[in-house]
Design a protein around this nucleic acid. Structure first.
Ligand code: SF4
Ligand code: SF4
Lengths: 145, 145
DNA sequence: CGGAATTAAGAGTATTTTATCTTAAATTAG
DNA sequence: CTAATTTAAGATAAAATACTCTTAATTCCG
């Protein structure tokens, strides 16, 4: 049950790294993150570019450049990140992959599926990057030595 | 938010077709299903072979052959099908795709994620193919003319 | 028996996702 | 200004997933 693509996984891990590193208000080098998190530099660059173009981050080139949060990570919701990286229809998919999921004459899964999607969305809407960034990082991303 | 691969989607749609067609106790031709459901014949064949090898279906070759349920669809749980087609670790994945999801020192998503996975599993364990097969088919799979 | 219908199995192809390489543009430090 | 550093962007490559083709095996029916 995988709900996020590599793009989102890597993007989130990088964002969490930034949170863990002095709140991400300073520019953090993409190179550094790619090395510490063991993610392909160019791939990560592209992912963070998406977030930059979506106005979630700002970037700066040249020595000591990198990316930084445009607003504090306390105010960035997980859902915001996921919608950017996975597409706007992320929370609006049919369980069986059929087009045109309607509420009229739904199959028995429909209501339940809608609820599952709803609670995921609710939780994603609820959770800020700041919140996420506490333990995850030190625990799983081999950060903070 | 896509939780099932095409393999599962197609597999389930075929199983639901079988349920809708006289309970799936008779052999149903794979060719017929592939045409009615607009799924590649050979691809569907392979998917149903997986289910046959997993002892969920039995198959019969030759004229009037096809596949049939080995036990009544009332007794087949959605989770059973999904575990066969997606792999046994289906309900045991980390949200961020990190290996070794443990309960000790989890990130703030862990508990929530565990609950989401839990309710999906519970619902999948709960739902039989027979239950699913009512409206879905006529409504979405352009069956029942 | 012999031919037609049908699933089984494996090889081969195409598409999508994931990852890398190359070059360009911006910025800074000296 | 120049050289080093760093992100931006696009082309290319590798891997995974999705799909197709070919051949074989089984069964039915005349
Ligand atoms: S009713 Fe069921 S099959 Fe139809 S679109 Fe909704 S979830 Fe999918
Ligand atoms: S604690 Fe969070 S990041 Fe770590 S394995 Fe569990 S869900 Fe994944």
């Amino acid at each position: 049950m995988k709900v996020l693509s590599k793009v989102s996984e890597y993007g989130l891990r990088a964002l969490l790294y930034m949170v863990a590193k002095r709140g991400g208000q300073e520019y953090v080098s993409i190179r550094e993150m790619s090395e510490r998190l063991d993610i392909s530099f160019h791939f990560l660059t592209k992912i963070l570019q998406m977030l930059t173009q979506a106005n979630l981050l700002i970037s700066y080139r040249g020595p000591n450049g990198g990316v930084a949060f445009k607003k504090p990570p306390e105010e960035i919701r997980l859902s915001e990140v996921v919608l950017i990286l996975e597409g706007d229809d992320y929370f609006d998919k049919c369980l069986l992959g059929l087009p045109g999921c309607g509420d009229r004459q739904p199959c028995p899964m429909h209501q339940f599926w809608k609820e599952i999607k709803g609670s995921l969305k609710k939780e994603f809407d609820h959770t800020s990057l700041a919140e996420m960034g506490q333990i995850a990082v030190s625990r799983h991303l081999r950060l903070v030595p």
